[in-house]
Design a protein around this nucleic acid. Sequence first.
DNA 1: ACCTGAACACCGTTCAAGT
DNA 2: ACCTGAACACCGTTCAAGT
Lengths: 215, 215
Amino acid sequence: MGKLTAQAIAERALEIGDAEGLDAVTIRRLAAELGVTPMALYWHFKNKDQLLAGMADHLIAGFAPQPADERPWQEQLRDLTVGLIRTLRAHRCARDVFERVGQVAVPNYLAVWNRALGLGRTAGFSADESCLISQYLLRSAIAIADAPGHSRDEQEVRARRAGLQALPPERYPFIVEMAAPLAGGMDPELYDTFGVDLVLAGIEALAARRIQSEP
Amino acid sequence: MGKLTAQAIAERALEIGDAEGLDAVTIRRLAAELGVTPMALYWHFKNKDQLLAGMADHLIAGFAPQPADERPWQEQLRDLTVGLIRTLRAHRCARDVFERVGQVAVPNYLAVWNRALGLGRTAGFSADESCLISQYLLRSAIAIADAPGHSRDEQEVRARRAGLQALPPERYPFIVEMAAPLAGGMDPELYDTFGVDLVLAGIEALAARRIQSEP
DNA sequence: ACCTGAACACCGTTCAAGT
DNA sequence: ACCTGAACACCGTTCAAGT
């Protein structure tokens, strides 16, 4: 049967996380599913944080950012963003994983980050600004990937909508009014395009301002 | 001495979270510090998730968004954003709290969200778009509030920078090059203004596009 | 190199009982 | 209404030992 390898462990952990949430991913539970003693996992990952990092790394392993080319940076940045989003979409628990993980410990994530940083520089941003932009872009991509309305049970959406509609309308009039889209009943197409447009529009606007104020 | 009230519990929990990280905030630990049995807390909060929600609520209790006025929505949205950021800055663990909490269970957060939704509508966005914009704006504000470079020990920054500089430069050239600002050695002023500008510029750009395509 | 067994120091939570 | 005591079913991790 499949040997016990860091890869296999991370894969199984992601399966559990996708199915039952990241809290269900436990060293002991994971070991039990792999037919092994909890301590066996400690040979492959020195602790649980490393396991999380391994999950995150395996998550974006399939996404190798393309090397820089001659197209305008806006296009390349958009490609990087939608590529990352598409990759993260493969696992429901992706967002939770990246929230709990130390990003520096995830080589494949660093590669994407590095690429975003480079594109920031070619866009004309300073080093400091490129740092902010890249972190902002990647964070937003992760948030967009975790779309409500994408691959969620009808029942869950309905429950959330009911919860929002039960709020006092005199205190939260807009939330009650827009309970349906807030709960996840939104066009997935709109969600993706609009989200990416929003993030990129901000970056492009600031880039344009820079050029203006710089003779 | 101070009575054991939900308020006092949430306050003490935030203190622990600020000082030692949110993982240190434990029912048992918290009870011990309050000189009480762990079970005592279960009278005030029905479980740990509710405690987290209580912490989040207490966190933004001091920030009541101003009612809508006659100024342009851009200004009002900016005020809301910087106000929220300033409030969150009061507690180091704010970001972690909001990552772990179900936002619907936090009344004061819902009030801010409701306000952002309303401003989205007056900006001319559809219901769906306003949902996306508001969530995006609040998420970004939380991220910006948790600034690296703001109120962090020198030692921590130095350690992170060393970690980044130790990465293989042929694989992550830009990360290694910009290790200093990435680790948190950035002008706090720039961090704040640039971050808020970035988010608002994106929203304003999309609002402008809408107007253009809509006679 | 790779895994097991037993043990330690923790968790959140329930349930019955006290005042 | 507000809190305690004892117990249950879990955690992550260390350390010595096996093969």
